[in-house]
Nucleic acid binder design. Sequence first.
DNA 1: ATATCTGCAAATAATTTGCAGCACA
DNA 2: TGTGCTGCAAATTATTTGCAGATAT
Lengths: 143, 143
Amino acid sequence: MGMATPRNYRLTSQRQTLLGLIRQQEGHLDAIELYRRAQELQPRISLSTVYRAMHFFKQLGLIEEHRFEQDHLHYEAKPKVEHCHLICLRCGRISEFQSPQTDKLKKEVEHEKNFKVASIQIHLQGYCDQCQGKQFFEVDNRE
Amino acid sequence: MGMATPRNYRLTSQRQTLLGLIRQQEGHLDAIELYRRAQELQPRISLSTVYRAMHFFKQLGLIEEHRFEQDHLHYEAKPKVEHCHLICLRCGRISEFQSPQTDKLKKEVEHEKNFKVASIQIHLQGYCDQCQGKQFFEVDNRE
DNA sequence: ATATCTGCAAATAATTTGCAGCACA
DNA sequence: TGTGCTGCAAATTATTTGCAGATAT
């Protein structure tokens, strides 16, 4: 809200730690997991710092934020090649998929709508190979 | 959590009202707005009922849930034709875009990964026609 | 030297849930 | 006649924020 945009940014040890963690990770992490891992390297780091750093990295275009089926965010380093996430509505597993359609879609949007795309999120929800046939009303698949 | 999946569903007046509202709406609505509109038709309806109905409709595949840049969900009737949402990071406006790539992508996923797609969400964040050139670090565009 | 960042604790706000009564089938 | 649904109030939980002290540049 009242938070003015700073004119200079600092590369603090916390930010280095967090960016390192998120970059060395294949795929995505949530705030709590990042916090746990960061604590092993910097015991006094706080959860707010994790959230603030994620917000900061996002503004810089270094990471992407995803909200899957759950109620909290996941973060991942911005990949070289765009990919889709396939989210299984039964087992909750999330896998990735790359397709040339993604890039075509982006170009279409840029040309036809004159919309400058900064990041893309493509989520396909459904039933994975192993979970097919069991899909109806499996509302509560936890525990 | 412990909520067992019911064997029979009931078409209550609340559910009729809510499904009616969401279907007559072009585009998406959030829980509060749905609640306001529903109250005009059924003054004693509660916000929990709205949330519970959305969860129910989602399980039935009648609606889609979207989390845009904000911290709360939006709901919309499942459309006949898939579309993408373009979200402007500066003005916050959300527009829609249809493309044949969407359907191709879906078919690819179904064939190559044997993943049964139930719903798709494609969000492109970036800068719209009017907001281009003003994009850098416009962190706080509210008020 | 000073603007920016951090940790801590407290606040915020969306969504979920327990429960007791109501109502559809 | 009983399972499923609702309203209400209270709980939960992710995320944000205020502030005072620390730190990068």
